[in-house]
């Protein structure tokens, strides 16, 4: 690990003042990903700012029914929160499908948004990787790409976004609240993570000096009928091969509205908007589910070792639709 200056701040003003616009400064809260990456000399911050004393640790229901989640709410606290587990089971299930109990006790809501890919070439510092070292090439394109993405890919990078929580957030109308020296702003979740394109080293739209303060989930009454299906190589404590977060509004056997998002297959948390629109107004049956799954994977591209994910992702969607639609 490279040396860095450590400082601890007590409020958001202190955090914003400490970070300035220093591109080599990082905030640390849970530390579960950044410390791992610092040990591997992949992340090399010169200044590490401990924000654990900041007052962003609450989950509040707003007057409009939206849920405002503090940036520092731990993954375990969010998963077991009574409001979340009752009204947004897909989010609760997604969180509990990720990592281990110890890591969930440490990892924060904002940190989860910012976790980096687990592509083994990204982690292996002797191998070319455009995400780690821009311009060096992508080892996964022709390498062992079993865990890699089939949607949102580019010829520069096919690394998957690793988060389970973000798949649930992608299915909901989520807004990210950010603060910096110039003021506050909000970013719709769909605009937050970036496709790799020609710049896979840039994961999201945050700029130096930005501090995430809250994540806001819009009220969605039918989200209480939702599920998260995750398929992985081990029964627990493993990243997704494929996953599907689904919320369905079903009335009298007809789907009125749907939310569908996919994990383990996209270079960013993947919302399947076309599939959502397709199922609206259709009967809640196998025929609808299969057609929706096909539509969601229409643009998928498999590589040598991950082509199986196309069929597996379809089955994950169908399974999640069956769980919620009957």
């Amino acid at each position: 690990m490279y040396p860095f200056i450590f400082t601890k701040v007590n409020d958001s003003a202190g955090a914003i003042s400490a970070v300035g616009t220093n591109p080599h400064a990082k905030f640390i809260s849970g530390g579960t990903n950044i410390l791992d990456l610092m040990k591997m000399n992949i992340e090399k911050p010169e200044l590490l700012i401990d924000i654990n004393n900041l007052d962003f640790k609450k989950i509040d229901v707003q007057s409009n029914g939206n849920i405002l989640i503090g940036a520092l709410v731990r993954n375990s606290d969010l998963a077991y929160n009574a409001t979340i587990s009752k009204h947004y089971p897909l989010l609760s299930q997604a969180l509990l499908a990720g990592a281990s109990a110890q890591l969930r006790n440490m990892a924060t809501t904002a940190g989860n948004l910012l976790q980096r890919t687990r592509c083994y070439y990204f982690y292996d510092t002797v191998m070319p990787c455009n995400k780690r070292e821009p311009g060096t090439g992508c080892s996964a394109l022709t390498g062992y790409n079993r865990m890699h993405a089939i949607l949102g890919i580019s010829d520069k990078c096919i690394a998957t976004h690793p988060s389970d929580m973000c798949v649930a957030l992608a299915a909901l109308d989520t807004i990210i609240h950010v603060q910096n020296a110039s003021g506050k702003r909000t970013i719709p979740f769909a605009d937050f993570h970036l496709l790799p394109g020609d710049t896979p080293h840039i994961d999201n739209v945050l700029q130096p000096g930005d501090l995430i303060t809250h994540v806001e989930i819009a009220a969605l009454p039918f989200a209480n009928n939702s599920t998260y299906v995750k398929v992985r190589d081990r029964a627990s404590y493993e990243f997704a091969l494929t996953s599907a977060a689904v919320a369905l509004d079903v009335s009298g056997g007809t789907i009125k509205a749907a939310r569908i998002a996919l994990g383990g297959v996209g270079t960013k948390p993947w919302r399947a908007t076309a599939a959502e629109q397709f199922v609206a107004g259709k009967p809640a049956n196998e025929e609808t589910y299969e057609a929706a799954a096909g539509l969601a994977l229409k643009d998928a591209k498999g590589y040598q070792y991950n082509a199986f994910k196309i069929e597996l992702a379809k089955r994950s969607i169908i399974s999640a639709l069956q769980n919620t639609g009957g």
Binding site: D36, A101, L103
Partner: peptide, 29 residues
């Protein structure tokens, strides 16, 4: 493993189990 993958370093901080290998001593004030 020193990478948060094996759990051998599990301790309780404020009564909650965490991986002490992924937590800086400097954060423990």
């Amino acid at each position: 493993c020193d990478r948060g993958q094996c759990g051998a370093c599990t301790v309780l901080v404020e009564g909650r189990r965490i991986n002490s290998c992924l937590h800086l001593a400097a954060m423990c004030e």
